[in-house]
C-alpha cells in the first residue's frame, strides 16, 4: 500500500434511491477507508437527501443503507460537508438530517458532529483544496 497521503473528496449529488449512485459511492468510501488517505465527503443538490433521518425503504423493496453513514466515524471518515443552499432549496434544515458523530482521538475521544454545513462558496473552496475528487 502506498505511503502517499492525498486528499480525497467524494461528491454526492444524487438522491439515495431512484439510482444506484449513492449506494455505490458509499461502497467506494468504505473500501477507500482502508488506504489511510485524508477523506472528505460532500453532499449537494439532491445528494443532501442521502443524510436525512427516518428513511424507510420497505415499500420500494430496496435496502435502506442510510444507517451506514452513522458508522463512517469508525472508518475515520469524519468530514461530511453539506451545502446549505442545497438544503434550503429543498426545504430541509440540519434538523432533518441524521445525527452523525465521530470520536476525536486528539480531544480525549470527545464525540463531535461529522456534518459541517458550508455555503456554496465555501464548498468551492473545499473542492479546490482536494487532490482527488470522485463525483457520483
Amino acid at each position: 500500500m502506498s505511503e502517499t497521503v492525498k486528499k480525497f473528496l467524494y461528491v454526492n449529488r444524487k438522491a439515495p434511491y431512484g439510482t444506484i449512485y449513492a449506494q455505490e459511492s458509499l461502497e467506494v468510501v468504505l473500501i477507500g477507508a482502508a488506504f489511510d488517505q485524508d477523506v472528505s465527503m460532500a453532499f449537494l443538490d439532491d445528494g443532501v437527501f442521502q443524510l436525512t433521518k427516518g428513511q424507510d425503504t420497505k415499500e420500494i423493496g430496496l435496502k435502506n443503507f442510510s444507517p451506514t453513514f452513522r458508522a463512517l466515524g469508525d472508518f475515520e471518515v469524519t468530514k461530511l460537508y453539506v451545502e446549505k443552499e442545497s438544503l434550503a432549496e429543498r426545504g430541509l434544515t440540519l434538523e432533518d438530517l441524521q445525527n452523525i458523530e465521530y470520536e476525536d482521538e486528539d480531544d480525549d475521544w470527545a464525540e463531535k458532529p461529522s456534518i459541517r454545513l458550508v455555503s456554496r462558496a465555501e464548498m468551492a473552496d473545499v473542492m479546490a483544496d482536494q487532490d482527488v475528487i470522485l463525483s457520483f
Binding site: 502506498s2 502517499t4 492525498k6 480525497f8 461502497e27 467506494v28 473500501i31 477507500g32 482502508a34 488506504f35 488517505q37 487532490d131 482527488v132 470522485l134
Partner: peptide, 11 residues
C-alpha cells in the same frame, strides 16, 4: 476490486 480505484487516485 474498488481498491484499484483508490490506488489509481493515489498514483
Amino acid at each position: 476490486g474498488l481498491g484499484q480505484l483508490i490506488e489509481m487516485g493515489i498514483q
